[in-house]
Nucleic acid binder design. Structure first.
Lengths: 158, 158
DNA sequence: CGACATTCGTTCACCTTTCAACTTCTTAGG
DNA sequence: CCTAAGAAGTTGAAAGGTGAACGAATGTCG
């Protein structure tokens, strides 16, 4: 009796597209990371600065920040400790829930962010946005959106 | 005197598309990695197995493998040590260049690869390929190709 | 209320990645 | 040839990431 079905291999086109996608993402990550290095920031650092700077009162709960930046609480905890030592953020107790902590963007963190942002944006343009027509970028966005939704729904499932 | 030009911020559409792209890639990596865990493989392991299995004689030079998988020699060296301990590959001396080494796919490595591949392909389908129309996938491929070329050209520049 | 489950964030032990130093071998130039 | 420059890989220490276990605080339900 046959329980397994034959694997549905990728067609040639699918495989090429998939591999290009993976490759672009690895190289892009590498390049953006490299362009941030002169500022002594990683993309993870930068991402956290962005989230904090866009939030009310320049502060977020650890858990929310972890969820927003798609990392484990443990990793974020280490990460924030490093950023705290670098003077970019500080921890602050939460009045309403005494288990909780806020990560607060310091003035230095804000200045760093504002100083670095133009360079990072430029990097994103040079290596991605400006290499694709606005129409194609729109199509890409439209194609990726359902995937993003699917993946968000998957997170934390068995 | 003004030397800096005003930063060319991303438009709203550009920013949304860019963020979705980044988000998809992080979640996708996470998901694919998770789907490989039951087989005790990481994507890095899998990628190496694929490269080796597709190569002549099931063997590649360390440097070539490092270049193909976009990682440093050091990282690859540690990685191969781990995979060697797991019985998936073995190192073999290179006749023509006595500095060099081959990484050779073992039978066990080949079997592992063949056993895991269908599941991995299925994972790629469920979380990506099948969520996008063939036309959109083609467009995506076409849009990403110049970016891939640009990024390849960038690698290892100052 | 009181017990029990759950959430928040940190910590510990362990694994992976990075970076620079190092060995060995090859190649190019005088 | 012989030396110097460079390439191939490895190594070891330090930094970063992971997952389970933990203490403290909150929620929930009889």
């Amino acid at each position: 009796m046959e329980t397994d079905t034959a694997p549905q291999w990728l067609t040639n086109e699918e495989q090429c597209a998939w591999r290009t996608h993976v490759e672009v993402n690895r190289m892009l990550t590498y390049q953006l990371e490299k362009d941030l290095q002169p500022f002594n920031l990683t993309m993870n650092d930068y991402d956290i600065l962005v989230h904090l700077s866009e939030s009310e009162e320049k502060r977020m709960r650890m858990s929310d920040l972890a969820a927003a930046t798609l990392q484990s609480k443990s990793r974020l905890s280490h990460q924030i400790t490093r950023m705290e030592n670098a003077g970019l953020v500080r921890r602050e107790n939460c009045e309403s829930d005494r288990r909780g902590l806020y990560t607060v963007l310091t003035d230095e963190g804000m200045e760093t962010m504002q100083r670095v942002a133009p360079h990072h944006v430029d990097s994103v343009r040079r290596h991605f946005v400006d290499l694709i027509s606005p129409e194609a970028l729109g199509e890409l966005h439209k194609a990726l959106t359902p995937i993003a939704e699917h993946l968000r729904a998957q997170r934390g499932k068995p």
